[in-house]
Design a protein around this nucleic acid. Structure first.
Lengths: 280, 280
DNA sequence: TTCGTTTTGTATGGTATCGAACATAACGGA
DNA sequence: TCCGTTATGTTCGATACCATACAAAACGAA
């Protein structure tokens, strides 16, 4: 393996950690291909490896009698397996698998545990990441109870868009329906609405985000708060001390400025093409 | 304040901690009355105090444009405020308030932080509790997407029942509808179904659980998994080491044996009165 | 190209839930 | 006791979504 440069990494947790912490982890990181449907963590089984995702998207799903439903999502902002490792268990009851193929830095559970035991700052960073996971899933619980398919779909596309390069999402309606816990045909209709309004373009197996800003408008409050919390907790540069008072009201103040900056600089421009409003 | 005995406490986290850890905390615990609607943690504000609940139930809610929805619940099995304290932030974007009046041991954030810094076992216990919170809210996200009002109501009543003495829940339909994110009249109808089937008895402002076991049958998979995870992570007596292999398949094996044992010994008996099955 | 497969589009009746209104019943203070 | 207030019961049209089926289109391999 070649010597790894921290600033060449795209994972945002790795980017956010101190150089010392990076040096601690670096010898244990192995870049791994993560093909579609790859199971990263199997339910109720001991977690042996964790993954700092570089690209692609992973889902956490709950399995019910009538199929699975997504209860969490992770991409290059995350570390798959952080919860069982850092919260002192060695397993979780949900499965984590790749829903968009990509790559990730794999690390052994023992190596990461040793690193977090040795470095308080690293431990603190990863614990903060777990807090963002918690905020995200609380939002999902809220959204699932309160929003219609169209808004939930818009939110989901935005979250996915945040985690990929470019504006194309390689997704099938069938898959989306599972993630949202709704009918497949309902997804088709909702996508048609979004497409008719010029927010996306849908082809077979591919959804292209055309007008991200208006997509956010349509999601109407279902998207944004957890993303702001990530910016505050992980990338709020001044947040070091546990009881720091930084970012007092930033989470309320609005969205992170550049949540998607590294992903697709073009979309930020494109998003401004038109900006009319439409009632939900 | 009188000297406190660990075995006289009813909070299950305190019960589960080692005597040493209890001694560490004991000087800082103040029994506090927690009346209905008392705000324990305000959203996006620094957490000054945490609460080991002794009785009563607290809700975590998300505020949307059309009202609040519950995205978490805590009772005597929990510590309100654990997330911001132990995950290294000092605030959360959701509010925590009492939905059933009770009491709790209040402790200052600094005192608890000092204790967790000093004791690895205490820190591990509380981090594991956070994992149970995470599992619980993932389940809520799943349930909100997949189950009808009746099943969700049944689950909610069971979770509430787990956390109170006796079988009476002092709740209004209006309140329940907010928690579940549904119409008030929908709650009334669902309660009537449950009552007609003999599972509960509903009077003005009071719901009595009559047949808990059949209530679980009706909840049909929406209830149980997080409760089993609590039993495994917190009360699985052998789980001490971080990478322990205890409880390998217990979470799948079924419900905790005595989740409600200390609360209402009578209900376990009563639950067995009848046991027919009915399709959902 | 052709054909089989996969994915998406479309239609339809049924159901759960909404949204709102109003009626009834329980409670509590004067 | 009465009466105002609060909580619950009930109704009903509207609607979002389900469940299912089938048609059309896109794709890919022979």
């Amino acid at each position: 393996m070649v010597q790894l440069q921290q600033n060449a990494v795209r994972n945002r947790l790795i980017k956010a950690m101190s150089p010392d912490d990076f040096d601690r982890l670096q010898p244990h990181l192995y870049l791994t291909d993560l093909p579609l449907q790859q199971m990263l963590i199997a339910p109720n089984q001991r977690v042996e490896h964790l993954y700092f995702l570089e690209s692609g998207v992973s889902s956490i799903t709950a399995q019910g009698s009538d199929g699975r439903v997504e209860v969490g999502i992770a991409g290059r902002e995350g570390l798959v397996g952080a919860v069982p490792l850092l919260l002192g268990s060695d397993r979780v009851p949900h499965d984590h698998f790749m829903q968009l193929a990509g790559e990730g830095w794999r690390i052994g559970a023992e190596a990461l545990l040793a690193a977090t035991d040795a470095s308080a700052t690293l431990r603190r960073l990863l614990l903060r990441y777990i807090q963002t996971e918690l905020v995200q899933v609380r939002q999902t619980a809220f959204v699932n109870a309160s929003f219609n398919i169209e808004a939930r779909l818009a939110r989901w596309l935005l979250m996915c868009h945040d985690r990929v390069d470019g504006d194309d999402l390689l997704l099938k309606h069938e898959f989306l329906s599972m993630m949202l816990g709704v009918q497949r045909s309902g997804v088709t209709l909702a996508l048609q609405n979004l497409e008719g309004a010029g927010r996306i373009k849908a082809r077979r197996g591919r959804i292209t985000v055309i007008d991200r800003e208006r997509l956010e408008t349509l999601a109407d409050g279902s998207y944004g708060a957890p993303e702001a919390e990530y910016a505050r907790l992980i990338e709020g540069a001044l947040c070091r001390a546990t009881t720091s008072t930084c970012g007092t009201s930033r989470a309320r103040a609005g969205w992170p400025r550049i949540w998607r900056a590294t992903n697709s600089p073009t979309s930020a421009l494109r998003a401004r093409r038109r900006c009319d409003r439409r009632a939900t």
